[in-house]
């Protein structure tokens, strides 16, 4: 079995800290993973709004070139940390394999460029890899600096759990809570784990900002020290618009926001800089006083 990394387009920009911390954590856990060569954009939510066939073919090309780049008998697991990428690839896989009409079209389009879609690739979210492949016991055993006293609001957002996820409950996900708990943190109970962050609406509409206010406020009410995120867009919305949201809704305190992989990295004793802790607008205060 081989893990192939699909960083996605925000890994080189706003989501750099997610990319950095994932790569560091995989290394520290001795999980081998290499980047997919020649990967292209997953299409995110924008492509589908313009052209359906192209959106599917765009995402499916990544799966097809992965199959092409590795030996036929090898089991390939594409690790897609960004929720939009994870969903985009899963959705393309779902339609290609289950829908003769769209699937036929995608396969034909790929065949035009001499690619054959065989359906061999699994699309995996790193949460799934950490919790189920690697295992919580091993994570616990490898923790060097337990996140003691850190109250975390695990925020999964929408596209990890809906609609194609094979590893999570769509209303009550637990993997991130379990991972961070195994590493010493205290997950708080809150009701917004899978509530929408507004996606691309947040920068452009008041409605989007209000959705983020709800998340920040609920995390605060639950007593969280930090919101842990698993998607570059969720993270961006919650941290980068926080000053505007605070001003608009009269929030008094800041709510730190960080990627769960950064928190994992801290627990594994990795260097803060290497984990991109300097690339956050509202970083968590670590270590926490109990």
């Amino acid at each position: 079995m081989r893990y192939i990394y699909y960083p996605g387009c925000s890994a080189g920009g706003t989501g750099k800290a997610y990319d950095e911390s994932i790569v560091e954590v995989f290394k520290a856990l001795n999980i081998e993973m290499e980047e997919l060569k020649d990967w292209n954009c997953c299409g995110a939510t924008a492509y589908m709004a313009v052209d359906e066939a192209k959106a599917f073919a765009l995402a499916a090309r990544n799966l097809a070139i992965a199959e092409d780049q590795y030996p036929a008998d090898e089991e390939i697991h594409i690790v897609a940390p960004c929720s939009a990428c994870y969903l985009g690839l899963l959705k393309a896989k779902h339609y290609t394999e289950s829908d003769p009409k769209i699937g036929g079209k995608i396969k034909k389009a790929l065949a035009a460029a001499d690619l054959e879609y065989k359906g061999k690739c699994q699309v995996r979210n790193p949460l799934d890899v950490f919790a189920h492949d690697f295992g919580l016991d091993k994570l616990k055993a490898m923790t060097k600096k337990p996140l003691e006293g850190l109250k975390v609001a695990s925020y999964y957002g929408c596209q990890i759990v809906r609609p194609y996820s094979e590893f999570e409950e769509r209303a009550t996900p637990v993997t991130m809570d379990n991972i961070l708990k195994a590493m010493g943190a205290t997950p708080v109970d809150w009701s917004c784990k899978t509530r929408c962050c507004g996606g691309m609406l947040t920068w452009s509409t008041g409605a989007g900002k209000e959705l983020n206010y709800i998340l920040l406020k609920e995390a605060e009410k639950a007593g969280a020290d930090v919101i842990a995120t698993a998607c570059p867009l969720c993270n961006f919305n919650l941290e980068c618009f926080q000053d505007k949201i605070k001003a608009k809704y009269g929030m008094k305190k800041e709510m730190p926001v960080a990627y769960y992989t950064q928190l994992m990295g801290l627990a594994l004793g990795l260097d803060e800089k290497a984990l991109g802790m300097g690339r956050l607008f509202v970083p968590p205060k670590i270590p926490v006083k109990v």
């Binding site: 020649d38 765009l58 092409d68 079209k105 389009a109 035009a112 460029a113 001499d114």
Partner: peptide, 11 residues
Amino acid sequence: KGDLKTIMDAC
């Protein structure tokens, strides 16, 4: 082989 434009044109 695998050219994105070829695939998009085919779409």
